[in-house]
Design a protein around this nucleic acid. Structure first.
Lengths: 336, 336
DNA sequence: AACTCGTTATGAAACGATTCATTGCAGTGT
DNA sequence: ACACTGCAATGAATCGTTTCATAACGAGTT
């Protein structure tokens, strides 16, 4: 026998299976003496509940499915952590799937979660999943979208206001007296990039004499940022911007390297620099980076809470859109 | 009714439940005509298999549990990816738990995995878990240790030879003609750190006139590395080492920053620098970093394969220890 | 016509935990 | 002595899938 069942425990303790179950789930219903006997039988046999049987009977699992775009991205691992901690507090487990920005993998994880009868799904979507999510909902599995504001208000979502974040970053640079601002970022097809740029433009348009230059990059990586930084450094001094807003911290770190290479441009004296995301590495850069912080863990925990509330309520739950404000973190790269 | 069962499908298709199950699991046993009828019933009802019921019947799940020390560490996320990909190929799912170097969380995940009746566990251990693993084994759940060579040969393990890696790194520096080597790393209680240092010492002792200086750090972070780098830069030129081996890439990146600050020490002209792990960021550093690459994804996939083999075999499986050789990656920080 | 295969399809049993209507029993009150 | 209350414990039924011994049926052999 590989593992003991309630039946074995009941036999050894000389009680019925129902009583064993009561000891496990409603201890107050069972007399102290019997509880003791059952407990010692459990210990002796090394009994461990079979989750599959519990779930089958319960009809639903105690798990939440989470699909992220990129498990290696600190933003998502923080988000996942936030969700997991919140879930643990409610006695739920989070199953994490990494779609790697691939629609096929995303879909495979949704299938898996459906088979597992998860209580709900947290999703940072790749493609147009709305029809699939509507199907899930019809089968009693609610979804909350994370890191994406959606036009479709029939689903709950938790996101950060990237427009406000972009505005905040640009306004900070303007408040330092900088007027020739460069935005580094791309591809423009990524919503976050577009929103952050739009926010920056809004702030800059509001100040007379301030100009915005957009330096497009192919990706949101350190390498792309470095190339952008180097191209700025190689310009005649008069043609350089006096401040840079990078669409994320990886770009900013790269830009910093590109600018400082060979005793080049001084940051922040000649060019002030601000990034976005406030990843752990930002504070540890050669010149500690100012950044716009996103409450990644809070996004995760909030999304999970919304999801559980939605799952608990009978149909007719009103979808809720939560948008967090970003936060400005000032460090050396925009000081002095 | 929230979701349809085989019974509903059978009724609609006008066949027995056994036949529906056969369509799902042994299609060749069922006539084409019936298969068609069942399939269309499945589609019409939106039937989705209930995994809990399958598992209950099967007695074991199709999942593998994986507990890592730090989900945010690229090394572990790569390892997890390797394991997941290999698992997917065998139709298994990997449940990832993050112990965050906490014994309590580690233990909680092992409990959870046991309740889920996972097929096996992949573990990067925190404390002394051997007794717990022996208990698991007695209950039919095998374990493979990852990223840890263990004296205890009763369990399979997959790891990298850190001694050889350290030796390789130091030998590379020596081959450049450098003789005053500094090792940056700590705390010494971490086995990986100790092994890498021991390997370096071995290589250095073999070369007459070569010296090794150990600069202890509190942690394996960018910040610690930077402090070490700055302390070296602030020395009189004659007392500086001519090469540095950092215990991991985060330290190396930090050291690089500390050295280059304010047009300081030139890397690699004045001081050559090599790190360890070959994280993605290493290639993107101000001066691209040489490093010792660990095959993280390969470790994950190999561990998973060992585990499945062990799980499939009846008792009496001979535990296997796999040790991978590290690989030297030469970049600008040790060239020229 | 009786028979043996071979191919399909059947449906009851089993997996293990939980639930709930029911029973047993001791104690109270009349 | 009887009824009543309340607490403990019982055990059969249930969840949905898979399995396997059995049945049904048609085709081919004698």
């Amino acid at each position: 026998m590989v593992s003991a069942s309630v039946k074995d425990v009941a036999a050894l303790a000389g009680v019925s299976v129902g009583t064993v179950s009561n000891v496990l789930n409603r201890p107050q219903k069972v007399s102290a003496e019997v509880t003791l006997r059952v407990q010692s039988a459990i210990d002796k046999l090394g009994f461990v509940r079979n989750d599959a049987a519990r779930q089958l009977r319960a009809g639903m699992s105690h798990s939440i499915g989470l699909v992220v775009l990129d498990a290696a991205n600190p933003f998502f691992s923080d988000l996942a952590r936030g969700a997991e901690d919140r879930a643990a507090a409610e006695n739920f487990t989070v199953l994490v799937g990494n779609s790697n920005e691939d629609e096929g993998r995303e879909s495979a994880y949704l299938d898996l979660f459906e088979q597992q009868r998860v209580r709900g799904v947290l999703l940072s979507p790749v493609g147009n999943v709305i029809p699939r999510l509507e199907q899930l909902r019809r089968r009693g599995i609610p979804t909350v979208l994370v890191d994406r504001q959606t036009e479709n208000t029939s689903f709950s979502s938790v996101a950060v206001d990237d427009l406000a974040g972009g505005e905040m970053a640009a306004a900070h640079l303007l408040s330092l007296g900088r007027r020739r601002i460069a935005f580094i970022g791309g591809p423009a097809s990524i919503r976050q990039v577009a929103d952050r740029l739009a926010g920056a433009r809004k702030a800059i348009d509001a100040v007379a004499g301030a100009t915005l230059e957009v330096i497009a990059t192919e990706s949101l990586t350190v390498l792309s940022g470095r190339a952008a930084g180097e191209s700025i450094r190689s310009r005649p001094e008069a043609e350089r911007p006096d401040a840079i807003f990078a669409a994320n911290d990886l770009l900013a770190v790269g830009a910093l390297q590109g600018l400082m290479l060979m005793g080049g441009v001084k940051v922040p004296q000649e060019i002030a620099l601000i990034g976005y995301d406030d990843i752990e590495f930002a504070a540890a850069a050669v010149v500690p980076l100012s950044s716009i912080r996103q409450p990644s863990a809070l996004i995760g925990s909030t999304a999970l809470e919304l999801l559980l509330r939605e799952a608990a309520s009978e149909d007719g739950f009103a979808p809720t859109q939560v948008v967090f404000p970003p936060e400005l973190i000032v460090r050396a790269s925009t000081q002095g």
